[in-house]
Write a protein that binds this DNA or RNA. Structure first.
Length: 97
DNA sequence: CACCTGACGTGGC
DNA sequence: AGCCACGCCAGGT
């Protein structure tokens, strides 16, 4: 993918406050031409040792995307105060712009 | 170049 | 609610 795109995406994710989340689609709209799928591609190919709060990126409707780290993601979010409703979804009040 | 495979979103049923 | 096409696009084979 284009380098500027990776930079835009990583920059945005780095700005998500602790205890808040945002979606792939939302990030995509903030960048210049990215799609939700390409945002996912960026997260998938992050280098080892990065410090990005990747756990704060969720799917539309506050659901967690189905991937290997989903279990871990849920723990990290819960640890920073993000709650899940009984259907496993994150309420809108935790969304960052 | 032609496929295939995803950390997606939306709309229809 | 759950399932399923479809559109989308970056990377790998």
């Amino acid at each position: 993918m284009r380098v500027e795109l990776r930079e835009q995406v990583t920059t945005i994710i780095a700005q998500i406050p602790c205890g808040r989340v945002t979606t792939y689609g939302c990030i995509a709209k903030m960048t210049d031409g990215a799609t939700a799928r390409s945002v996912g591609a960026v997260l998938r190919t992050l280098p080892q040792g990065h410090t990005l709060p990747w756990q704060r990126v969720v799917s539309a409707g506050g659901r967690l995307a189905d991937h290997e780290g989903a279990r871990r993601q849920r723990e990290l979010l819960a640890a920073e105060g993000v709650l899940f409703d009984r259907r496993g979804r994150i309420p809108a009040r935790f969304f960052w712009p």
